[in-house]
C-alpha cells in the first residue's frame, strides 16, 4: 500500500512493474534523433484517416494495443486505462479507446498527462486495485495547431520560443506483479499548480519551468535526495527556454546544479538545429513517446538505474489567454528504477 513520505511523495512499497511500453509517431518525429527507437513511425500525418482528430485517435489506440501486445496480454486483461490528450473533451483518447472495452479514466494535465497517468496507474497497481493498468497519451501537430493556434495553411511566423507539438502517442502497461528485471515505479508525486505570470502562449517552457523546479525541489526534500542520486532527471517538455530556466531556478533556489543529470523530452525528440522546430517539441505525445521508447529501453538494459520523470504541463486555454489570464502550469513526477 502506498505510503506518504514527507509532505508530497507517495512511496510504492510493492514496486509496481512497467511490463511493456510502446511509442508511435509521425514523419517529422521519425526523422529526429530517436526515430529508430519508436515502435512505429507513420509516413502520413493523416494515418489514412479523413481528419486530424481521427488520425490522432488512431495512433493513440495503436500505442495502447502495441504495449498490451508486447506485455503478452490482451485488452481484456487490462483493469483500467488512464489516458489523456490535448483535444477538447479528450476526443483522441475516447475515440481511440472506445473499442477496446477497458474501464477508462480521462485525464487532463496538458503535456504532463503521461506522468499523471503513470502515477495513477502505479498507485492502482501498488494497492492491487488493478492487476494491470495502462497509462497512455497522444498529441498531433495538426490537431493541436487547429485547436490552439492557426489553420495549417495560414502564413504566420512562429516565435523563437515556440515549441512544436509532437505527433505521437505512448502507452505503458503497469502491473501489480511482474518479472524482477522489469523497470518499476518506486514513488510518485502529484504536483501543485504554479503560475508566475507568463502570458505568452508561445512561451510555454517559461510558464512551466517554475512548476518543474518546485516539483523537483519538493521531491528531493521529501526523499532526502540530491541530483547525485539520479541517473536522469527527465522533464517533459520544457523545450530549450524552459530547460535553461529550470536549471537556473535549481541553482538560485537550492544552489544545486542539475545540468549533468537533466534532460528534456522536448529537446530530445527533435534535432533543434536541423529540424526548424525553434524551442523543441511539446504536447502529451512528446514525453510519452520518449519515455515509452528510448528511456524505457535504457531502464530495461540497466544503462539507466533511476529516472525521475517530471511531466510538465502548461494548463493553457485559448479562451483564458484571450481574456488576458496568465498560464497556470503543473508538474507531476514519477520515480522509475531499473529492475536490473
Amino acid at each position: 500500500m502506498a505510503q506518504r513520505q514527507g509532505r508530497f511523495v507517495l512511496k510504492l512499497p510493492n514496486k509496481p512493474k512497467i511490463l511493456a511500453t510502446a511509442a508511435v509517431v509521425g514523419p517529422k518525429e521519425a526523422e529526429g534523433p530517436h526515430g529508430p527507437d519508436f515502435d512505429n513511425c507513420h509516413s502520413d500525418d493523416y494515418v489514412g484517416q479523413e481528419t486530424w482528430e481521427k488520425a490522432e485517435s488512431v495512433i493513440h489506440k495503436e500505442a495502447i494495443e502495441r504495449a498490451i501486445n508486447k506485455a503478452g496480454l490482451s485488452p481484456l486483461d487490462i483493469d483500467m486505462v488512464f489516458a489523456g490528450d490535448l483535444m477538447d473533451q479528450e476526443i483522441a483518447s475516447t475515440l481511440g479507446i472506445r473499442e477496446l472495452n477497458i474501464p477508462f479514466v480521462g485525464l487532463f494535465g496538458a503535456c504532463s498527462t503521461m506522468a499523471l497517468g503513470l502515477a495513477l496507474a502505479g498507485l492502482m497497481a501498488d494497492t492491487h486495485a488493478a492487476n494491470y493498468a495502462v497509462a497512455s497519451t497522444s498529441s498531433h501537430f495538426c490537431s493541436a495547431e487547429k485547436q490552439f493556434r492557426y489553420p495549417l495553411a495560414y502564413g504566420a511566423q512562429r516565435s523563437t520560443t515556440a515549441q512544436r507539438t509532437v505527433t505521437g502517442a505512448g502507452a505503458a502497461v503497469v502491473a501489480a506483479n511482474g518479472p524482477k528485471r522489469a523497470p518499476y515505479i518506486d514513488a510518485v508525486f502529484l504536483g501543485r499548480i504554479r503560475d508566475l505570470g507568463i502570458k505568452d502562449a508561445a512561451n510555454m517552457g517559461a510558464a512551466m519551468a517554475p512548476a518543474a523546479a518546485t516539483t523537483i525541489i519538493d521531491f528531493m526534500h521529501d526523499t532526502g535526495t540530491t541530483a547525485d542520486d539520479y541517473d536522469l532527471i527527465l522533464t517533459g517538455d520544457l523545450g530549450k527556454v524552459g530547460s535553461t530556466l529550470v536549471r537556473e531556478l535549481m541553482l538560485t533556489r537550492e544552489n544545486m546544479d542539475i545540468s549533468k543529470v537533466h534532460n528534456d523530452c522536448g529537446m530530445m525528440i527533435f534535432d533543434l538545429e536541423k529540424q526548424d522546430v525553434h524551442a523543441g517539441g511539446s504536447g502529451c505525445g512528446c514525453s510519452a513517446a520518449i519515455l515509452c521508447s528510448y528511456i524505457y529501453k535504457e531502464l530495461e538494459k540497466g544503462n539507466l538505474k533511476s529516472v525521475l520523470f517530471v511531466g510538465t504541463g502548461a494548463l493553457m486555454s485559448p479562451t483564458l489567454t484571450q481574456q488576458g489570464e496568465t498560464i497556470p502550469s503543473i508538474a507531476h513526477a514519477v520515480l522509475i528504477r531499473s529492475g536490473c
Binding site: T160, T161, N203, A206, A209, V241, L245, E248
Partner: peptide, 17 residues
Amino acid sequence: MAMAEKASPNSPILKNA
C-alpha cells in the same frame, strides 16, 4: 519574469525585416 525574458531569445528582427 526577468529571468524568463533573459532565457527567451528574441526574433532576428533585422533578418526578418
